[in-house]
Design a protein around this nucleic acid. Structure first.
Lengths: 121, 121
DNA sequence: TTGCATTGTTAGTATATGCTAACTTATATT
DNA sequence: AATATAAGTTAGCATATACTAACAATGCAA
């Protein structure tokens, strides 16, 4: 599948925005991530080429099956780590920022193991 | 201080090698990390310029105080995460690889909190 | 001494990632 | 209609990071 941290973050953001917005456009992603729209434009082009998203002619972004799978995986990791850190006493903002980096670097094996550990705590 | 993940890894590697080798040279670092010596040469030049290492005319690399502080911090994180993951049941090789990425991305606050949590487990 | 092996350096390449600037297009406002 | 605003695109730049290729320096070995 060969997906980058950056691409994972974009997909997660599209997924997250889709929960609260009726449609998601490039400019919404840029706003959410604090990036310039040119950067997002290029990133969306790459995601289109890898078929992780489709974009309607109105500019509405949709996740494909593969895009959704990646986004859901990263989102699950993000939520798990963020909530766990907050439970342990870390400030919510810091927990969220750390989760945002953590979510990309763990192997599936470590993630599943930590998930089990957390649920037994 | 403004230190990159890459630089952190080099410093940690120098520190780690220093535990088992009488002297550490560029070529030892390259061997350890599986990088080309040209890459290490450039990285060592940057670490010299930032005064995180000094290099004798024989090519022996020494950590400065700031370099050692960074290296020890990263090393501590690495060991903590690796051992914790192994304790939870993750394969040692995977645990080590994951620790290698984890060690760079956590805030001090989250690290200290997780450290406390682990020691209470 | 000649020459190979080891170590280190430099220049130039490639990829990933985000930025600025300039442009296009479509919509909306006067 | 003329212009202004919003959204998207493209080209070119900058940084980080490792690579290949070519070269320099040092030391051992025939």
């Amino acid at each position: 599948m060969n997906i980058n941290e950056s691409a994972e973050n974009y997909l997660e953001t599209i997924y997250r925005l889709g929960k609260s917005h009726p449609v998601v456009r490039s400019v919404d992603v840029a706003e959410e991530l604090g990036y310039k729209k040119s950067s997002v434009s290029v990133a969306m082009k790459n995601l289109r080429e890898k078929e992780h998203i489709t974009v309607s002619k109105e500019g509405f972004i949709q996740l494909t099956t593969s895009g959704r799978e990646i986004a859901e995986m990263i989102f699950e990791r993000h939520e798990l780590f963020k909530n766990w850190l907050v439970t342990l006493g870390v400030d919510a903002k810091i927990a969220s920022e750390d989760a945002c980096r953590l979510e990309h670097v763990l192997s599936k094996e470590s993630f599943e193991t930590i998930k089990k550990h957390i649920s037994n705590t």
